[in-house]
Amino acid sequence: MSAETALQTASELLEQWAKEATTPEPFRLDVVIEPDDLLAAVKALRDASWGYLSTITGVDLGVEAGEFELLYHFSNGAALATLRVRTPRDNPSVPSVCGIIPTATLYEREIIEMFGISVEGTPNTDRLFLPDDWPDGVYPLRKDYIYDDPTAQA
């Protein structure tokens, strides 16, 4: 399956949920979907054995935008399909894909810890990647997290 046909297949698979589909770069397909459709879309890709979940990237769109964006990257050879999901800053929440892809737990935990986005139904939400003495409610990858360097020279 060449990259073009793979992308063609992916866009057909995801068509029914896509709010918007773009190709920002060659061999890439970005599909914006609603959080509620995420599970169905992931399942569709999984059932069609379309590639594997490379990772989940969280992006803070900034305080003004008031939203987080989660990017579910699926790779299939040279082809990359990205599911873009947006969730509001004041009550960020997305469903867990662990039921479909068990290994996603690693990526989801990163999202929970770094952005404070609650992932509904993920099997494990314990603090595990930040140090044990990390203060609660502080999410380092949020844009409004400013780090004071204790070792910085004046």
Partner: peptide, 12 residues
């Protein structure tokens, strides 16, 4: 001590 101070500073 440094850490605590930091943590307080960060938690906005």
């Amino acid at each position: 001590i440094q850490l605590d101070a930091q943590a307080n500073g960060e938690a906005k």
